[in-house]
Computed example of a mutant assay.
Amino acid sequence: MTSTNVPDIDVFGEEPGAKSRTSGYYTDSEPRIWARFLGKWVDFYLCQIPTFAVFYILSLLYGFGVGLFGWPYEDAYFEGWGFVIGYFVLQLLVFLLLEAFCISQFRNTPGKALMGIRVRNAIGGRLPFSTSLKRTGMSMLAGMGLCLPLISLLTHIMQARALSEDGFVLWDKYDGLQYQTGPVAAWRWAIAILGYAFFRIVDAALSYL
C-alpha cells in the first residue's frame, strides 16, 4: 500500500510554509508582524457586514414587538451615543463568535487567508471551538485592546514588541498554538492595505457626522 503526503494548501492555492522555525509557533522564518496586524483588522472590518445584518434583524424584531405587544418605542436605541455603543458591543460579540468559528472549522479567516496565515493546534489539527473562542477573546483583549482608542494603540505596540523579540504573543502560547504561514504576493498586500485604509477613513468620516 502506497502512502503519499499531500501538503496543506491554503484557500489561495499556496503551500503555507516550507521553512521551519525553532520556536514551534511558526513555519516561516519571520514573525510577520504586519501580516498578522492586517489580517486581524481586515477580519474585524469585514465583520461589519454580518454585524449590520444581525442589527437589522434585531431592529425588525423590536419593531414587531412594538407593534404586536405594545412595547414602548425608544428613539435612543437608534441614535446618539447609545446607538454607537450598542452597535460597537454587538460588533465585538459577532467578531468574537465568527472568528472563533472560522478558525475552529477552517483553521483561518478571510483576513488570515489573505495574508497567508493558518492557525492550528500543537499537533497540526483544528482547534476545538471552545479553545478558539478563548484564543480570540485573548487576542481581542490583549492584542486589540477591545478596539478602544489609545488602549488599542498601547496593546498593539506591546504585542508587536513581544512578537519581534520572542517570536510569539500571549495568545500564541495558549494550548501550544502554531501559525503556519506562506509567501504573500504583492497583490494580497495591496488589497489588505487598501482595505484597511479605506475602512479607517470611513470610520473617521462617520465619527464627524
Score class of each variant (00 low, 15 high):
Val6Leu: 13
Ile9Pro: 03
Val11Phe: 14
Glu14Gly: 01
Glu14Thr: 11
Glu14Phe: 08
Glu14Lys: 10
Ala18Trp: 09
Ser20Met: 08
Ser20Ala: 06
Arg21Leu: 07
Arg21Lys: 10
Thr22Gln: 13
Thr22Trp: 11
Gly24His: 10
Tyr25Asp: 04
Asp28Lys: 04
Ser29Lys: 15
Ser29Leu: 14
Glu30Thr: 11
Trp34Asp: 05
Gly39Glu: 06
Lys40Glu: 07
Phe44Met: 04
Cys47Gln: 00
Ile49Glu: 01
Ile49Lys: 01
Ile49Gln: 02
Pro50His: 06
Ala53Arg: 06
Phe55Met: 12
Ser59Ile: 00
Tyr62Asp: 02
Phe64His: 08
Gly65Cys: 08
Phe69His: 05
Phe69Tyr: 09
Glu79Thr: 07
Val84Trp: 14
Val84Phe: 12
Tyr87Trp: 14
Tyr87Ser: 08
Phe88Ser: 11
Phe88Gln: 01
Val89Trp: 04
Leu92Tyr: 02
Leu92Arg: 01
Glu99Val: 12
Ala100Ser: 10
Ala100Val: 01
Phe101Pro: 04
Ser104Phe: 06
Ser104Ala: 13
Gln105Val: 11
Arg107Asn: 11
Pro110Asp: 08
Gly111Leu: 07
Met115Tyr: 11
Gly116Cys: 09
Val119Trp: 03
Arg120Asn: 06
Gly125Asn: 10
Arg126Cys: 09
Leu127Asp: 06
Ser130Gly: 05
Ser132Gln: 06
Arg135His: 13
Thr136Ser: 13
Met138His: 05
Met138Cys: 07
Ser139Asp: 10
Ser139Met: 14
Leu141Glu: 04
Leu141Ser: 12
Ala142Phe: 15
Ala142Cys: 14
Ala142Arg: 09
Gly145Ile: 05
Cys147Leu: 15
Cys147Pro: 01
Cys147Trp: 15
Pro149His: 05
Ile151Cys: 06
Ile151Trp: 14
Thr155Gln: 11
Thr155Ile: 09
Thr155Leu: 10
His156Asn: 13
Ile157Pro: 06
Gln159Arg: 04
Arg161Ser: 09
Arg161Glu: 07
Ala162Asn: 10
Ser164Lys: 11
Glu165Ile: 10
Gly167Thr: 06
Phe168His: 12
Val169Thr: 11
Val169Ser: 04
Asp172His: 10
Lys173Tyr: 01
Asp175Thr: 12
Asp175Cys: 09
Gly176Cys: 07
Leu177Pro: 03
Gln178Ala: 12
Tyr179Met: 13
Pro183Asp: 14
Ala186Trp: 00
Ala186Asn: 03
Trp187Cys: 07
Trp189Val: 00
Trp189Ile: 00
Trp189Asp: 00
Ala190Cys: 15
Ala190Met: 15
Ile191Val: 15
Tyr196Asn: 08
Ala197Cys: 09
Ala197Gly: 03
Phe199Asn: 04
Phe199Gln: 02
Val202Asp: 07
Asp203Ile: 11
Ala204Ile: 12
Tyr208Thr: 15
